[in-house]
Structure formats: structure tokens, C-alpha cells
């Protein structure tokens, strides 16, 4: 493998970078919708109903942004992954992918269980061969044992490399699962943010200077023609 080739571990950094963009976008949108201008206008509200509506809108917006940050930061937290996680329900799609191309995941072995069992086996062969070699006085036999020892070490290294690779994939997939969940939550939370912002801005705009007078004038105009 060359240094420029992508690895499953690279995906973790990319996923987390995506999540940081989601947080930044959510925070930016919230600031834009309920910025300093509308907040300043809130102080001029005189109608209790509008104050309550503005407060509810603001609370909804802040809750939505907090929800996004909470979910995203949950996914950004360092994860501890072990190969045991390969059987987790949340990695079902990874297992399905492995089933379509086992060689890409397990090399010459049929499954994770076989890979782990064979790694243990090759390690045992290497260990026993090393002991036998140390006790061997016959040169011809020593050569045979040495050959097995070399093969066992190579096989064990290969199996260990596959196991490490699989662990990295499991880790990347776990982070991917958390990022996808955070993205779904972010989508729902953005609806809450927008709903809150609409409520807030509507109540604040109702009380802008001139709006109330126009309303009153409009109401007055309607009433006057109706009077005798």
C-alpha cells in the first residue's frame, strides 16, 4: 500500500469534518434568523401576546440549535471500537457488504470467526515451531521446522494485518452510523429552528414602529364608514 492510497481510517476524519460543517451551518443559520437586530427589537415589544410568542420562537430556535450541537458532538466524541462490534445491529449494512465480497474483508478466510481462529492457529504453529527448532539437533529436521516457522510467521502477520484493517473499517463504519444519525436529527432540528425563527420574527415584526399605527389606522378606517 502506498502512502497516497485511501484507507478506511481516512474516512473517519472526512466524516467528522462533514459533521463540523453541519454544526457550523446550523449555528450560522440560527444566528442569521435570530440575529442581533431582531433581538434588539424584542425589547420594544409592548404586547404580552407578542412577547410570549417571541419568547417561544426564540426558545424553539435555541432548542433546535442545541439539539443539533448535542447530536453532532455525540458523534464527534472519540469512539472505542473492537472487532466484537462487527456483530452489532447498527453494522448490519457492513456485514451485508462483507457478504458480497468476503475476500476484500477477510482475505483468504471465509468469515471473521475463521480469520480470528486461523490467526490463533498460525501463532500457535509459530510458537511451537520456535520451541521445536531450539531443541532440534538434526540439521535436516531443523531445516523443515525453520521452513514451517517462516511460513507460520508470514501467515500470522498477514492474518493480523487483515484483522487490523477490519477493525479500522468497523471503527469507520461506527462513526459513519453516528454521523448519519446526527444528520437525521439535524434535519428535524432545523425544522424546529426555522419554525421558532418564523414565530419569533413574526411577533417582532408585528411591533415594529409604524406597523401598529398602520394597523390602528386600518382598523379605524374600517370602523368609521360603518358609523351613522
Amino acid at each position: 500500500m502506498t502512502a497516497t492510497e485511501p484507507t478506511p481510517g481516512d474516512a473517519v476524519g472526512d466524516l467528522r469534518a462533514t459533521l463540523k460543517w453541519i454544526i457550523a451551518a446550523a449555528a450560522g443559520t440560527g444566528t442569521l434568523l435570530v440575529g442581533a437586530g431582531p433581538l434588539a427589537a424584542m425589547g420594544k415589544l409592548d404586547d404580552r401576546g407578542d412577547v410570549a410568542a417571541a419568547f417561544c420562537g426564540l426558545a424553539l430556535t435555541v432548542t433546535g440549535i442545541g439539539w443539533i450541537v448535542w447530536q453532532a458532538s455525540d458523534a464527534l466524541m472519540p469512539q472505542v471500537s473492537t472487532l466484537a462490534r462487527f456483530d452489532d445491529p447498527e453494522l448490519a449494512d457492513l456485514r451485508a457488504l462483507a457478504a458480497t465480497d468476503p475476500r476484500a474483508f477477510f482475505g483468504p478466510y471465509a468469515s471473521l470467526d475463521e480469520l480470528r481462529a486461523k490467526l490463533q492457529f498460525h501463532d500457535a504453529v509459530a510458537g511451537n515451531a520456535a520451541v521445536m527448532l531450539a531443541r532440534q539437533s538434526d540439521e535436516r529436521r531443523a531445516k523443515m521446522v525453520q521452513q514451517v516457522l517462516d511460513s507460520a510467521r508470514t501467515n500470522a502477520d498477514h492474518a493480523r494485518h487483515l484483522e487490523r484493517r477490519l477493525l479500522t473499517i468497523v471503527h469507520a463504519w461506527t462513526v459513519r452510523h453516528h454521523v448519519r444519525r446526527a444528520r437525521r436529527h439535524a434535519f428535524i432540528a432545523m425544522i424546529v429552528v426555522v419554525a421558532g425563527a418564523v414565530l419569533f420574527l413574526t411577533s417582532v415584526n408585528d411591533n415594529r414602529p409604524g406597523t401598529t399605527e398602520k394597523k390602528r389606522a386600518s382598523t379605524h378606517t374600517i370602523v368609521v364608514p360603518g358609523s351613522p
Partner: peptide, 28 residues
């Protein structure tokens, strides 16, 4: 191995497919 004595322990030949890397978003 596997409950029997075997005489054919060999070094496993690594296939190029063994090193296939997977990246998030790619299909297998």
C-alpha cells in the same frame, strides 16, 4: 489442525484482492 495431523502446512499466498481498501461511500 481441525482435529487431524496434516503434513501440508504452507505459506498462504496473498492475493491483491486481500488488500482492497474500502472507503466510506464506496460499494463493495
Amino acid at each position: 489442525e481441525d482435529g487431524v495431523w496434516k503434513a501440508d502446512y504452507i505459506q498462504i499466498q496473498q492475493s491483491t484482492e486481500d488488500g482492497t481498501e474500502l472507503r466510506d461511500g464506496e460499494k463493495g
